[in-house]
Design a protein around this nucleic acid. Structure first.
Length: 745
RNA sequence: GCGCGAUUAGCUCAGUUGGUAGAGCAGAUCAUUUACACUGAUAAGGUCGGGGGUUCGAGUCCCUCAUCGCGCACCA
């Protein structure tokens, strides 16, 4: 009780309280049942933590995610649900590997090729482990009530089994196939990346009009033109009706005479340039498709390191960037340049993980087909029958359209459909070492896909019989896509899986809807014939006070740990909830956090006042209440109902604000103030009446304080739990498992 | 090009099914041996981006324009 005499000190409270929660075991629903806190027959409420990448530390956006999820989890736990929140981390394949390579290169000037695959992976794993430990510490600092006994990692053994199982099923169904297709090639990292991993950067460069036989063609990339022997125009273009599809003609080109063929294709934009172009099918997706339609040759011009191949003649072996001005000079010498447009603005593709320019290349890769029909053997999805034929694209669209997966806010459904409609087959193989190895083995032209290697691993000599595993690893999102059920023990039919899947809510940032949300729907739909979650709650970005994106280079980062040190976790949590709404970006400032620190102290002081005025109070006796008392208590019931509904309907920002306002400006400013006189007995003349007034005042204040602590707990768990431990008449229990004061629906 | 969002008090934002505008912060004035200065009280502050429409009634629904921001696609 002496503790209350000083201002609230989050620094000496929070770690101790978290330890108390952890030791209680109540983060684990099994223990809640065992200890009688949760009924064995209670309904389940489960969410997965979007696993943070083991590439760095948590930022303020992660902090927001943890707060929103913790509010949902604590609320449901208090309401008596069998509540499970599984934590974990993501190996983030390419992001982590490129980070380690970057550090290695800066430190020792080494690349991964200076190591064996095994030794390099040891380095990456060491790095990942360090980051993992930091991240876990940060998650705890935020007060997250995650069940650590079930912690998972996207690259651990259990998840690897899930990945191999998923891959094999898709392979057997021919949903996964190997094909020569245009991929996004990063010559620096020597790997493919998916369409979603690309950033587009605007660039202004010259645009050249080149004489190509009787035509003039436009190009911004003269260095790719060596092998261009097809000239393409729109079949309806009146300017070129004298040229027929299939006509051939001789022309003088960069390195001498060549024979060109006329191709008519509707993909050509008549309005752009001269309406005529040559194509480079090996290094451009649109050109590739034209070549496919007309069965044209495809020749590689640029090699895997970004250098020109022998087809470039004198320019062979040069990096394209160096070659470009030289080639332009050659073209000018040969009088092949009709004109140059100096300022042409276009977008360049950049790998978002590492920054190198993407060169489209044709490469044999593993793909997930989104348009191939397969039979969904066992469907739990309404509107799709077991045994029905369907494509992944249709499946992904159906569950959202039929609202079996509901997205909050709703407008993101359109964003989701837009992405689905543009979706192409998903390139899942990566030429990097860190990640899940593809469970396919090669022996000459033979191919084997299985959960284990085809060779007898127990053979006495221990040697393989010529089978070699595919060297590639999987896109990190392949394993993330399984997260809602791989964390529950799938492919084993565990109790956890039966109890907690599908999960109730997926809470994540809207920037990750394609990478992750869509892939989870894909994987769950295909492998389980079910949805991975019933609701998707999308939060926005956390921007700085001026509305700018936080970034290290700009130096406007607000680090959650620093804020926690200065103002406490509760204050940081409230500032991340109030004034933010789903799907919208929000602004964060230190002032805002400071304001909520004051709120924590306000609760502390109000408690001090109430508890120091409880002499002679017996909570078991219901005193005679005045009409005013009854009004105050009725208002408490109203606010309880409102807060409950707000949380149920994902309006956390409203609930937080209402509680803040109610506690401070109704309870503290009005109700406490008007009861002060009654407590000291100055209002009544008769002693007997004074005693009655005092008992009523005590009852009202104690009741409201106690209830407020319960309602506030999901938002600011530390200060409320700490005060709860100081409250008389309710020893032996933690606030985190105190029943929520409304009836189950 | 296709799509989405925002525009409400000086600043940041609420306003959940249409019923004569609401909070925090900042600023103003006052209070001070108070549970709490990490305080309280009071007052001030808005033609809800412009225009049009539906309606008895619009910040809220519809159309249109403007400005800012974002996503997707991407053409040689």
């Amino acid at each position: 009780m002496d503790k209350l005499l000083k201002p609230y000190n989050p620094q000496e409270t929070e770690d101790r309280v978290y330890k108390l929660w952890e030791d209680s075991g109540f983060f684990n629903p099994d223990i809640c049942i065992k200890k009688g806190v949760t009924s064995p027959s209670a309904e389940a409420f489960s969410i997965v933590l979007p696993p943070p990448n083991v590439t760095g530390t948590l930022h303020i956006g992660h902090a927001m995610m943890l707060v929103i999820e913790d509010i949902m989890v604590r609320f449901h736990r208090m309401r008596g649900y069998k509540t499970l929140w599984i934590p974990g981390t993501d190996h983030a394949a390419l992001a982590t590997q490129s980070k380690v390579e970057e550090i290695m290169f800066k430190k020792d000037g080494k690349t991964r090729h200076d190591f064996s695959r095994e030794d390099f992976l040891k380095e990456v794993e060491k790095f990942a482990q360090e980051k993992h430990d930091t991240i876990v510490g940060q998650i705890k600092k935020m007060g997250s009530s995650t069940d650590w006994s079930r912690e998972a990692y996207t690259l651990d053994d259990a998840r690897n089994l899930a990945v191999r199982t998923a891959f094999k099923k898709m392979y057997d169904d021919k949903i996964i196939y190997q094909g020569h297709r245009i991929v996004n090639w990063d010559a620096k990292l020597q790997t493919t990346v998916s369409d979603d991993e690309i950033d587009w950067k605007e660039e202004t460069i010259p645009f050249y009009y080149l004489k190509y036989g009787p035509f003039v063609i436009g190009t911004s990339r003269p260095e790719t033109k060596f092998g261009d022997k097809y000239v393409v125009m729109h079949p309806d273009d009146a300017r070129y009706t004298q040229h027929k599809h299939g006509d051939t003609f001789e022309l003088e080109w960069i390195n001498g005479p060549i024979t060109a063929t006329v191709i008519k294709d509707k993909a050509v934009d008549m309005e752009f340039g001269t309406g005529v172009m040559t194509i480079t099918p090996f290094h451009d997706n649109a050109d590739f498709e034209i070549a496919e339609r007309h069965s044209l040759d495809k020749e590689q011009i640029i090699d895997w390191n970004g250098k020109l191949l022998p087809v470039a003649g004198d320019f062979a072996g040069l990096y394209i960037k160096k070659a470009r001005p030289l080639i332009v000079a050659r073209l000018q010498e040969k009088n092949l340049v009709e004109k140059v447009d100096e300022k042409y603005t276009h977008n360049v593709a950049i790998n978002s993980r590492g920054g190198a320019v993407i060169e489209p290349q044709i490469k044999k890769q593993w793909f997930v087909s989104v348009n191939k029909k397969f039979t969904l053997a066992d469907s739990k999805i309404a509107g799709i029958k077991s045994g029905q034929e369907i494509t992944l694209k249709e499946l992904m669209k159906h569950v959202v359209e039929s609202h079996q997966v509901e997205i909050i806010p709703e407008r993101f459904e359109r964003v989701y459909y837009n992405w689905i409609d543009n979706l192409r087959d998903w390139c899942i193989s990566r030429q990097i070492w860190f990640g899940h190895r593809i469970p396919v083995w090669h022996k000459g032209k033979e191919l084997y896909c299985g959960l284990e290697a085809p060779s007898n691993a127990d053979a006495p000599d221990g040697t393989s019989d010529g089978w070699e595993q595919d060297p590639d690893t999987l896109d990190t999102w392949f394993s993330s896509g399984l997260w809602t059920f791989s964390t529950l023990g799938w492919p084993n039919e565990t109790d956890d899986f039966k109890t907690y899947h599908p999960t109730n809510v997926l809470e994540t940032g809207y920037d990750i809807i394609f990478f992750w949300v869509a892939r989870m729907i894909l994987m769950s739909g295909y492998l389980l014939g079910d949805v991975p979650f019933k609701k998707v709650y999308l939060h926005g970005l956390v921007l700085d006070a001026k509305g700018a994106k936080m970034s290290k280079s700009v130096g406007n980062i607000i680090d959650p740990l620093t804020m926690i040190e200065k103002y406490g976790t509760d204050a940081t949590r409230l500032s991340l909830i109030i004034g933010t709404s789903p799907g919208n970006d929000s602004k964060m400032s230190e002032d805002k956090i400071r304001a909520y620190k004051n709120f924590a102290n306000k609760i502390w002081n109000a408690t001090r006042f109430v508890l120091t005025n409880l002499d002679g109070f017996d909570p078991a006796i219901l005193p005679e209440l005045t009409e005013d008392d009854r009004k105050d208590l009725a208002e408490l019931e109203d606010i309880t109902k409102e807060i409950t509904e707000d949380i149920e309907n994902y309006r956390f920002y409203l609930a937080g604000e209402k509680l803040y306002h109610y506690f401070w400006h109704t309870f503290a400013d009005k109700i406490i103030e008007k009861n002060k006189a009654r407590l000291s007995g100055v209002q009544a003349n008769a002693t007997e009446k004074a005693a009655g007034e005092k008992a009523s005042a005590q009852y009202v204040l104690f009741t409201i304080l106690k209830r407020s602590l319960i309602l506030l707990h999901p938002f600011i768990p530390f200060v409320t739990e700490e005060i709860w431990s100081l409250m008389p008449y309710n020893k032996n229990s933690l606030l985190m498992v105190e029943p929520w004061p409304t009836k189950e629906k």
